[in-house]
Design a protein around this nucleic acid. Structure first.
Lengths: 347, 347
DNA sequence: TCAGAATTGAGGTACGTGCCTCATGACCTA
DNA sequence: TAGGTCATGAGGCACGTACCTCAATTCTGA
């Protein structure tokens, strides 16, 4: 019964009245049109703050007869995780359309900074309000992000951040926590201690390094009975990872655990299933995919840590809307939680 | 470059043209007003399907100068999980308002079917488009749900479903999968086997039974070295659970694991911390709360399975919007995933 | 066949915002 | 002081839908 909240939201009319100016002037201020004296603009800004006015995004999009356009740049190649990001975008496209958002996806060559930078440079602000990119840290891309931002396109980073750039927001998991979680689980799986091997894709990738860091930290702190082997580098390649794991199993018949913190899970599962038996090591891998699902079901993999691509896309869309109405404001999104999957809670 | 999707969404005007009727007639059909011959209505319905028309919810709410009103009925009492549901609603209220949704919460006495039924009966369709309820299965409530539905209020169940009622949608986790996951983790934590105790709140609660069922299933199938003790009933009470756990630890000094599938976690943690040492059992509990967080940090609890109240509220809000535009249609929401938390991935 | 009822159409106003034109007045400069 | 620029106001139309009134038409029954 309390706070019935019958008070309407403030509109542009309210702002005009409160600032003692006309609707046209408020409109000029709100949409950054010229021809307003600094003193007048100030009055309007003050009224906006005082009334807590926020543009009605839906009415705004409707008036412009225009959808909010978001372009996702997602690496192409054989990376199943990137595919599931693209699928998540596709899955939400229809629903987003009914909120006047138009989502589109551009697949770019993986690790090809030039092509991503070119894609960003080619964006026309009339065709794109917000660009969402998955990228590694390259000066070339940093420059392209800053340029797009200057042209009025909000840029958001997904999965991996681009610190020092003009990107408006970052959406991704805490990879250090992911590594810690892997260690915490493996440690509990192996109360009697033993050898644990760590396989990374590349020690030049920020997310892989973060996971390794978290893993080592918890292993050292809580599970001194575990002996770390590696990190080895499988370069996220199926064949290379498979050979690596096969050699590991041969060289260390008593291997107690494996943490594959990179991709290349298809090779991992193949090598494990070749020798699967009761004394097989406990295995933790990253990202739910056809390969890792199969590994969970067959028992080759015990746990998969998942970045929740669908949730990341959901939050990216929400953030794009938020960015659309507060040009400079800070945008808050729900944190993306690391999903932990066993055979028994597979979706 | 493909499918540029320049085609506008269909509007009421398009429907009118396609059906060969006037705007007014389309309006009458869409909003269930009287005075339309069956044959004419049919033509309109057909055009709607053919064009794939769907009402623009934002424009619709704007035209009516009305927010979409959603009322959450959440049990009161000392249940931390219910509190976090209410907090999630409060946290999203502001944001929802900018999408023309007005959220409100009514706390009702826990397990008091009469008071929930009365609350539903008192709802006026002008003040509530959608009611979201957390309830147990009682005939009284079933009747109230059906009555509210007849009055034009969409009812949705949260956390626990009400099968056989007219509720339009259910949002909650798969509790059988949660139980299976607990067994799968405990089994891996205890490769050498041992005694595992199960504590439920009440064996009359559907969600507790589901968890128990999943737990037993996986224990029997995969971990025959584990001996099940219980299920014991702690009635989700702090003191009772504490006494129960203390007695368990005394009676079974070699206890290897505990799965508390109900509430009463404060008592659980207190009892465990009193005797915490290296040989303490592995412990899995449900729902992130102040108590279980403390247990994770102190090491008294190894894993917490969480129902993700925030995600449940998020999906409930999305479902309420979807229900608002398709009165009878089926509504799809993202499945709520069981969160698995260790000390090392605490949010 | 005609009154009366039921059905349908036409068109207006409103919601909150964007964008446009035109008019008014203030101020500046030559 | 005339001509110009700049700042501001007033108002209209549009977006997609809801809801209203007032005809105009069709149908029904006696």
């Amino acid at each position: 019964m309390n706070e019935e909240a019958t008070r309407r939201r403030a509109t542009v009319h309210d702002v005009a009245k409160a600032a003692g100016v006309s609707l046209a002037t408020v409109d000029r201020v709100l949409n950054g049109r010229s021809g307003v004296r600094a003193a007048t603009a100030e009055k309007v800004e003050e009224a906006i703050v005082r009334l807590g006015f926020s543009r009605d995004l839906n009415a705004s999009l409707m008036a412009r007869a225009r959808d909010l356009k978001v372009v996702f740049f997602i690496p192409d190649g054989s990376n199943e995780f990137m595919d599931s990001l693209a699928e998540a975008v596709a899955r939400r496209s229809m629903l987003a359309l009914s909120d006047r958002m138009h989502l589109s996806t551009r697949r770019i060559r993986a690790l090809d900074a030039g092509s991503l930078a070119a894609g960003l440079d080619a964006l026309d602000p009339r065709d794109c309000d917000c660009a969402v990119i998955v990228t590694s840290e390259e000066p070339e891309i940093l420059a392209a992000v800053d340029s797009a931002t200057r042209r009025g396109i909000a840029v958001m980073t997904l999965v991996s951040d681009l610190p020092g750039s003009a990107r408006k927001h970052f959406i991704g998991v805490d990879n250090v926590a992911a590594g810690r979680t892997a260690a915490s689980l493996l440690g509990r799986f192996l109360p009697q201690g033993g050898k644990v091997a760590v396989i990374a894709g590349s020690l030049h990738l920020r997310d892989h390094l973060d996971r390794l860091h978290g893993f080592r930290e918890v292993l050292a702190r809580d599970f001194s009975a575990l002996e770390l082997i590696g990190p080895l580098e499988g370069h996220d390649e199926r064949a290379e990872t498979q050979a690596l794991v096969a050699k590991l199993l041969t060289d260390h018949p008593d291997l107690a655990g494996i943490y594959n913190l990179g991709a290349g899970n298809m090779g991992l599962v193949t090598a494990l299933e070749a020798v699967h038996n009761q004394t097989s090591p406990r295995v933790i891998a990253h990202e739910l995919s056809a390969s890792t699902r199969a590994g969970l079901v067959s028992g080759a993999i015990d746990v998969v840590l998942d970045q929740n691509p669908d949730g990341e896309i959901r939050e990216a869309i929400a953030a794009a809307r938020a960015l659309a109405l507060g040009a400079g404001r800070h945008v808050a999104t729900d944190p993306i939680e690391i999903g932990i999957f066993l055979r028994d809670n597979l979706r």
